[in-house]
């Protein structure tokens, strides 16, 4: 795993946005793999990333014509056009602002008649698309990834999940503070679904994520912090802001910062291709 630290949330957003744009732009469609397959989260952390992607698109530096997306999760029991649904979030913050073909976007349908089938079909659709090239994610304050709340199996697949009481209380504010109106269930990709992606990028910002970040990086692999599973992923990148590093050891922070510094020095001396041959450009270099 590699950790990149930036000063502010906005800089984190720019960094990951540029990173994803580079991946999309360097993707060469082949007859059997015509699309770059991108996994996407919702929530406040990824917003600066989406903002950057939209900016790049508007500048003409990025197109989503060759991109297929799969979202991580969706509530069960609220209509798609509910202001708090993840369909609404994605449409408002990304899909309506870029040139993606609506047919190429996938979000779990929380209103499906047969929720089990919906989940199975989703996994099948991901396989049919050739697997996910890059899964962008965030983490919860308790270290969950997607709706894989603490205690979720680390080899779980797309399924129905009951939300933790803490998550329901936290969501109350989006539903007129009416506890009864807050969805209690969600459909979510599993930890293994994320782990299957060829590359995973996590955005972790804010002081309230600091403890979760230290647990997922400095703690062991543990189902109470489901994001920690990424320690075993061959190509995982976490980008965080300074606030989120507050619970990390100084040594940890310094080490990850030094990796970036070394890469910069190598590149300055031998050019951008040098770090590539040294393997330093890969997030897994750490």
């Amino acid at each position: 795993m590699r950790l990149t630290i930036r000063d502010t949330k906005a800089q984190v957003g720019d960094y990951i946005g540029d990173y994803i744009a580079k991946r999309i732009n360097s993707f060469h469609p082949k007859p059997n793999r015509p699309y770059f397959v991108l996994g996407l989260p919702t929530g406040s952390s990824p917003l600066p990333v989406y903002k950057r992607l939209v900016e790049l698109h508007q500048k003409g530096a990025l197109s989503f014509k060759n991109v297929v997306t799969f979202n991580m999760d969706e509530y069960v029991g609220i209509p798609r056009d509910h202001p708090e649904s993840y369909h609404t979030f994605m449409f408002k913050n990304l899909f309506s602002l870029i040139d993606i073909d609506p047919k190429n976007t996938h979000i779990l349908d929380g209103e499906a008649e047969d929720l089990y089938k919906e989940c199975e079909d989703y996994e099948a659709a991901i396989r049919a698309a050739g697997g996910i090239d890059l899964f962008l994610g965030g983490i919860g304050a308790d270290g969950h990834i997607a709706f894989n709340e603490p205690g979720s199996s680390l080899v779980s697949r797309t399924r129905i999940k009951t939300l933790a009481y803490e998550t329901i209380l936290d969501n109350c504010r989006f539903f007129n503070n009416d506890l009864a109106a807050v969805p209690r269930m969600a459909l979510t990709v599993g930890v293994q679904t994320v782990m299957d992606a060829r590359e995973v990028v996590l955005v972790v910002t804010g002081q309230n994520k600091a403890l979760a970040l230290s647990q997922m990086i400095e703690g062991g692999v543990n189902h109470m912090v489901t994001a920690s599973a990424l320690q075993t992923h061959p190509w995982a990148l976490v980008v965080c802001d300074e606030d989120a590093t507050n619970e990390l050891r100084v040594k940890t922070v310094k080490y990850f910062k030094s990796i970036e510094k070394v890469q910069d020095e190598v590149e300055a001396k031998y050019g951008p291709s040098a770090s590539k041959s040294l393997g330093l450009h890969r997030a897994s270099a750490a």
Partner: peptide
Amino acid sequence: ADLYISTSTGQIISGQSSFFTSNLS
């Protein structure tokens, strides 16, 4: 914010439903 209209119905529509339901951009 954005506003979406349909030339076939001559009405204001939900851009979001036309995106997700009819797959129309």
